[in-house]
Structure formats: structure tokens, C-alpha cells
Amino acid sequence: MEARLGGPCVKFGDGVNTDVIIPGRYLVSIDPAELAEHAFEPLGPEVQARVRSSPVIVAGSNFGCGSAREQAATCLIGAGVRAVVARSFARVFFRNCINTGLLAVECPAAAEAARDGDEVWVDHRAGRVEVAGQSFAFTPYPESLRRILESGGLIPYLKQILAAQAARER
């Protein structure tokens, strides 16, 4: 994962829930591309098209509230979303982002400042969000979580750890 990533954003309000992000009927899949076709389906094709053409989602409070479904994060990855910047996240959704390698940043000031369509760039190592030229700070991830994120998620991260262990045992 690059340290700095971003692009034009699509902006949502407060309390966007997991049933809206990926309806339960599609959880029979774990394929990011397949899931992406149904991301935000309850909100209609225009919103879906916007999400697919926006590398950054900006949202209000409690983004991703509801279910523990990990596909709420993977469907966004499949749709080409690189980062989510929100006033706040629901806790399981936040975990699922880190564990699937999707950058999720809590930065109320940036979430407030961004207007729909603005260029938003995130530098997760520096702890900075740039919104249309303005810069906002957030607390960078603790190292343990950063390593999971930068490995592309929990499973690839653990795979590296297990490989290193096996090499030591050899």
C-alpha cells in the first residue's frame, strides 16, 4: 500500500449501515468484484456509479453500523475505493477495513470540510488528510494495526508471520 493515496470523493451523511453498503442477500459471495456490483444497491444506480468512480468515500458519523459482515469492506475494495474518511466508524466495520486492507481514517474535521466530489488524499503514516488543498491531522495507526493494513489485511499478514515461523523452524 502506498503511503499516500486518494482522488475525488463521494460524500455520504451519518449512519450509513451495512445493509445499505452490501445487502445480506449477496453474502453468498466473498469475491470483491462480484460484491462490488451490489455495493450500495438500495440507494440506486446513480449512487452506485458514483462509488465506482470515486477512490475515496467521505462520511459522517457511525459509518458501517450494523452487521459484522466483512463483505461491507471487501465490496468497497472491489468497487475501487481506496480509503474511507469519516467523522466516526462503527467498530466492527473499522476492524473489517483494517483486516481486509482498506484504509479507514477517523478525521471529523476533514469529513466536515470535504464537499462531494472534492479531491481527498490520505497519508496514513504521516496522519494527514488533504481536502482540496487544506490539510487535517489524525492520530496515525498504532504499529500493530499498521502492519496488518500494509500487508493487505489480516490473512496476508498472518501468512507472512507463519512463513517466517516455518523458516525459523527449518
Binding site: A68, N99, I155
Partner: peptide
């Protein structure tokens, strides 16, 4: 548990919390 309503286990004085499926695998 792979279910958000795992908070229910508190009814018996246990700590229960929902996580993603990759976390359960790990």
C-alpha cells in the same frame, strides 16, 4: 463471534463481541 449481536453473551456475565470472519480464522 462472526455476528454483531455477540454482545448477547453479557446476559450471563461473559464478554462477547462481533468480529469479521477473517479474524475468526486467524
Amino acid at each position: 463471534g462472526t455476528d454483531s449481536h455477540s454482545t448477547i453473551y453479557g446476559a450471563l456475565g461473559a464478554f462477547g463481541t462481533g468480529v469479521g470472519f477473517s479474524e475468526v480464522t486467524a
